[in-house]
Write a protein that binds this DNA or RNA. Structure first.
Lengths: 391, 391
DNA sequence: CATACTTTTGTCGAGCACCGAACGAAAGTT
DNA sequence: AACTTTCGTTCGGTGCTCGACAAAAGTATG
């Protein structure tokens, strides 16, 4: 019983009549009516009033009901955490953030998650459908376990899903933070783009790659690691990864700050650099633009390799305005192949700091509204009165 | 009627009894028997004798019948073309090759294709299921049209599929030559690997990327272009693409040959370089190893970005033995992240010169045996005696 | 304002696919 | 030769889907 294919049509939010759906699917009107009935009983679809009559009885409209359930999206950063409550359309209903050190370990961080989820869902606990979460390190998506995360002591192979489900018995989806930012940006601002790369420039540098419409995680879930690619201008610079010549050693927030500090400025992190730029400091503008050029070299390579149609630049250092973007664009359009750049757009993140939580919520929504999940749910309320289900 | 899910189980070639299939699928034995019957009538499955008795009547076995249809795989190179006849298991039945200049234009090249297909299939024309073809340039896979191919004058947006189908009215699948090489290598030698990158080093340098189990073609179908990525050692070298500093300008076959020519050797192309190395020429060994290091720099970046579990090195320059591979390995294992290289294998192509045609055949087989195609075929011989089909 | 017309809706019987059980047949064992 | 075990097939039942029909709820028309 394919209830999901009717739902897929309604998922865009546009209300439709039963007759329209029958024409779109090729099914009989009576079949459509039965499936709509199931979806209405599940709450996923709701009556939407009557359409204008075309001469006879006005048809009743049905539309996706985003309020049927809620999801929580959590974005755990290195030093800050953020969580949102969203409905099934991805619209934000509430938002929380807090300073939170991921190095404090899973118990502490997941404790905050538990309390925050409780607080966000409040009385709607029964309508919570899933939780999506991003972590700042490599994650094996299928199991939800962090794998050798460099800045997350105590988290290695920790059973995050199991811990969260102890208090919130709903599906829990975990992914890398850059991956969920890519997802958030794509779902909210580039819904029709199948090949999008999100570049995060902050304390580290990473990329989330959506290719052919789906997130590419690679064999070990470490795909998109831009930060430790070698660039010529970083030759001799030692990186925290132990190697030398890494992009991160010259173009990430700390590297830019260090360079300005050598020149006498009082800066310690990405945030200070951003403030200097906002204040119009020419040395800072220059340094960030140079960082953009370095990143651009690697992005140019990435464009040749992946051939995306949109590259989104985000992360704290990108918040400084157009300087970083300008540097990246300059190099990418000079270095990448004409065919690959012909329709390429390199744009700043539109979701900004919310990209992560939006993506985490999108991950959760994607799970709740997946065809498989719809089928399972519809079987429980289906019209199988005396069915074979008890076999 | 999901005949295809029974077929998917049998596709591995292992013979099974009806009872086994019923247990594997959860379907009733009678249903399995009916579907087996359809598959046998289609020829895709054939009786395989009886299994040993376990005390009673011995069950009869059924197995995938690769001889039900044949496919042709065509690999058009810059100056040579190759074609094979294969059965549905991918086993080669016949092979042809010929010197053929792709720059002669589509009419001439596709004329050769038509004659070669006729010759290969011979009396089996009725059993030809599909044709797969690789072209040496960017191809829009969905339409099968080359897009601005640099070395294929007259081919731009040419309707290759239409032309071939005029004489051979079967599905025709077109893709980039490196993509089909990646597919060929994966299907024949790494069937369980979902993340594989094939690097072709010859007159040009390119990569075919299989990620998450499927070929990644990118937004314009130009994904995997390694050749025009910038490497530091190529600074100042002008490339045929117009840019400077490209990997291809220093590490591809012509570049290596040019370097040896400067040193006084009599070489013009990749083939001469390979022969020099086979003859034990130290300068050639050195030059190819250096080329390997340059390529390794880009492959290291690729490994960080894509995180494959296998990197296959192929192409004419790779045929020279271990030198190129050694250079690539040296840099990749030094430059890529430990987590990404922990389980990474960098290996020479096992399919060698046949990678392309094998992949082209695999593309064709994948189309013929796709669940959708099976369903369509089974509907025509299905047990629908008085069914609703006449609607 | 009543009537005819148009269009949608809900219900109902029919057909088909699939399932499970039962039965006869085949092949090996005692 | 009788028994056991498994196979292959047939048969009735059930649910899903479809097309048809009457009721419902509007709009045009006199």
């Amino acid at each position: 019983m394919q209830t999901s294919d009717i739902f897929e049509l309604l998922r865009d939010g546009r209300p439709r009549t039963r007759t329209q759906l029958a024409q779109l699917t090729g099914l009989a009107r009576s079949t459509v009516a039965a499936r709509i009935d199931v979806l209405v009983r599940l709450g996923l679809v709701a009556p939407y009033g009557d359409a204008a009559s075309t001469g006879g009885r006005p048809p009743s409209l049905f539309a996706f009901n985003p309020g049927a359930q809620v999801v929580v999206g959590v974005d755990i950063g290195a030093t800050h955490a953020r969580a949102v409550l969203a409905d099934l359309s991805g619209a934000l209903l509430a938002e929380t953030r807090a300073p939170l050190d991921v190095a404090a370990g899973p118990e502490e961080v997941l404790g905050w998650v538990r309390r925050t989820v409780d607080e966000l869902v409040g009385a709607d606990a029964a309508r919570l459908g899933a939780i999506g979460m991003g972590l700042p390190g490599p994650v094996e998506h299928s199991t939800g376990r962090p794998i050798n995360p460099p800045i997350m002591p105590g988290w290695d192979r920790y059973d995050v899903v199991g811990h969260v489900q102890r208090h919130h018995p709903v599906p829990v989806l975990i992914d890398n933070d850059v991956n969920i930012m890519a997802l958030g940006e794509q779902r909210t601002h580039w819904p029709d783009v199948d090949d999008l790369v999100f570049i995060k420039v902050a304390t580290g540098i990473g990329a989330g790659i959506i290719s052919g419409g789906s997130l590419q995680r690679g064999a070990q879930g470490t795909a998109g690691d831009l930060g430790h690619v070698r660039v010529s201008r970083a030759d001799g610079m030692v990186c925290r990864c132990g190697n030398e010549g890494c992009l991160e050693a010259i173009a990430a927030g700390p590297a830019v700050a260090a360079r300005l500090r050598e020149a006498g400025a009082d800066v310690t992190g990405s945030q200070d650099v951003v403030e200097l730029i906002r204040a119009g400091d020419l040395a800072a503008v220059q340094a960030v633009r140079d960082a953009g050029r370095d990143i651009g070299e690697v992005v140019a390579t990435l464009v040749n390799l992946i051939n995306p149609s949109v590259v989104v630049i985000g992360g704290r250092l990108a918040a400084a305005g157009e300087q970083l973007l300008a540097g990246i664009r300059e190099v990418v359009y000079r270095r990448s192949l004409p065919l690959a750049t012909e329709h390429l757009r390199v744009v700043p993140s539109a979701a900004g700091e919310q990209a992560g939580v939006l993506g985490a919520a999108a991950l959760a929504i994607g799970h709740v509204l997946s065809p498989a999940a719809i089928e399972v749910a519809s079987a429980s309320v289906g019209s199988k009165v005396g069915g074979r289900a008890a076999k």
